[in-house]
Nucleic acid binder design. Sequence first.
DNA 1: AAAGAGATAGAACGTTCGGTCTACCCGGAC
DNA 2: GTCCGGGTAGACCGAACGTTCTATCTCTTT
Lengths: 189, 189
Amino acid sequence: MSSRTAPGPRERLLDAAQKLTYSHGVGVGVDTLLKAANVARRSLYEHFDGKDGLIAEVLRRSTAEDEARYEETMRAAGDDPRERLLAIFDKLGEIIAEPDFRGCRYLAADLALADPDHPGHAVTRDYRKRVHRLIEHELVALGHRKPARAAEQLLLLIDGTLAAGATRPGTDPAASARELAEHILDAAG
Amino acid sequence: MSSRTAPGPRERLLDAAQKLTYSHGVGVGVDTLLKAANVARRSLYEHFDGKDGLIAEVLRRSTAEDEARYEETMRAAGDDPRERLLAIFDKLGEIIAEPDFRGCRYLAADLALADPDHPGHAVTRDYRKRVHRLIEHELVALGHRKPARAAEQLLLLIDGTLAAGATRPGTDPAASARELAEHILDAAG
DNA sequence: AAAGAGATAGAACGTTCGGTCTACCCGGAC
DNA sequence: GTCCGGGTAGACCGAACGTTCTATCTCTTT
């Protein structure tokens, strides 16, 4: 009951799957996941009703964490919407610099899950909508003349930063994107 | 000997693999590829020494085609480097609009091939270098003050356009990117 | 002490994976 | 005609896949 309890099989499995589906892709075998989590085979099917359910739940958890990270990043940047939005790109720079960065988890999942009916797709779609809302809200607060268009452009910069961060070592895509983002925000009117 | 000869097993297999590794990801099974190409199992190993070799060759072929498409797009845009570069984003708009567009093949491959030693990675790395060179060359011809930085930014816009095109239906990332690209080029000095 | 829920270990299922192998077939060169 | 290289067809291999199953163990609750 206390918050200091050792994590149960469900949590261990989620933790391991979150780590491994990122580093090795959603194609990792269930044996690998079970072994890494030290969890019985059966628990996977009790808690998540199979691998697809586990993947969907991992994505749900990740999106919640990442959305919270967006909010925390903006919160730490103060009250000015402009600073709050630019802080996102500084944060992206940190994320990309992490040694085990492997690109955007959600894009990778969408590209890897060939079945368009896989429950994971709905999760990533929702996540993108929430981030979109988050950013558009700031643009409205900033008084931007075209918040919808500007939001699309900022999201494109984020996508591009994560893609370039994964595939163009030695470059600093976050800095490049930030510069372009400044221009978008300066056109606020 | 004539150019009108029916394509041999090697070509059929490459054609099928090029199509299927894009629509279904590089995780497609060998059986699926052989069936689609109407090719004997053995021919795969004779010509490509296994699935990995086939994938690498498919990527090589695709990069050659895509690089040629960049050059053709710029050639068709005339002599002005600015127009030639902006034409890329118009072309991207067309590509994204195609009904079977599924994102950037090379990013998908890099994300899906967990093994960093897979021969496919070298191919995509080379391709990105060549496109980088192509774009930087135009920026130099344009007389841009910071061709290296501007090239990185344009590449980031391309990556972002392809990513957003695959994951944000209903938006027009190519148009968003083009607008930002114009700003980059206007800062040419 | 007894019971029951939840976890564990692990065998086993059928399928698919990538890869190897044998056997046959066909067309052009000798 | 004979040979032979390149192709096809398909059986087969061990391994891994996701899934289901039984059996045992270990807590917590009563």
